[in-house]
Design a protein around this nucleic acid. Sequence first.
DNA 1: CAGCATCCCGGGAGATACTG
DNA 2: CAGTATCTCCCGGGATGCTG
Lengths: 158, 158
Amino acid sequence: MHKSVLNEQKCACRLLRNRKVAKTQIVNPAGCETPNDDHARCKALGQVLDRIGDKWTIGVVGALSKGPTRFNALLRLIEGVSHRMLTLTLRGLEQDGLVKRTVYPTVPPKVEYELTDMGSSLIEPLQVLSLWAQEHRPAIEAARASSLVRQASEAGAT
Amino acid sequence: MHKSVLNEQKCACRLLRNRKVAKTQIVNPAGCETPNDDHARCKALGQVLDRIGDKWTIGVVGALSKGPTRFNALLRLIEGVSHRMLTLTLRGLEQDGLVKRTVYPTVPPKVEYELTDMGSSLIEPLQVLSLWAQEHRPAIEAARASSLVRQASEAGAT
DNA sequence: CAGCATCCCGGGAGATACTG
DNA sequence: CAGTATCTCCCGGGATGCTG
């Protein structure tokens, strides 16, 4: 009740950043009819990051990049993931057409997941990002460390 | 108490995915000494996504990509962001050496934020991702929509 | 084995108010 | 104007247990 107002936003930009909203409505609802280059970029990025930015999606995509994999295999490969989250992540991915789910109606059910074409096309941009990450990680660590040191010394000096 | 055990994980992979952990300890603590190509990729990606995967970082980077900007200007540009979150996001980015904070000690304080070299180098990978996003958004929307339709019809058929 | 429903906790993030 | 601290609420996500 105290936050009823803020749901009516002019631009869908950050609305799209919310998963629940994004799930039901990925297109801009209204008020964002003139997506200049900048806005489009922002929105597109926001969407992708909503997709891959969650805890486990990348791990899943990475694991699946090697080929079709069964549920429990994924569970072990990614390992940090809980049963529930793996299910949810896979469902989301499947719903977005990034992974394909194949059920073998055997007596012990067997389900294999694999990347669709679109799903595997995501790997490349991800690798670009990964490269950037590997390249700049030392610098980031250094910056972070020095920043922490600075703060500590300031605290001590005060 | 009921979740005391799970904090001791063998691989730091998803530990790195948690912000609080990542903030204090970005290097792999132990047990992950042999980072094969795959693991390194996973970890690096995890870190980057922890950085840029949160709600506002991209918006901030995007806004800053046009040049130095003042705090309130950012607040307006990104608009959906709250005062607090913008501050936090900027602090994180600054701490990681991705943005530079310049304070002009004028009577009304004036602070400008701008991307560092490393920060602006992030723009390119982001654009790659953005391109992918723009390219595949229709497909994703379609897949999502058809999935929803399928679910609805199944529910109706039952 | 795969999936789903339920419970429940912790932390992310908004609102607000105060400082310099 | 820029930043910080506090309070609070809400939901992401782990644990658990049941179905087919």
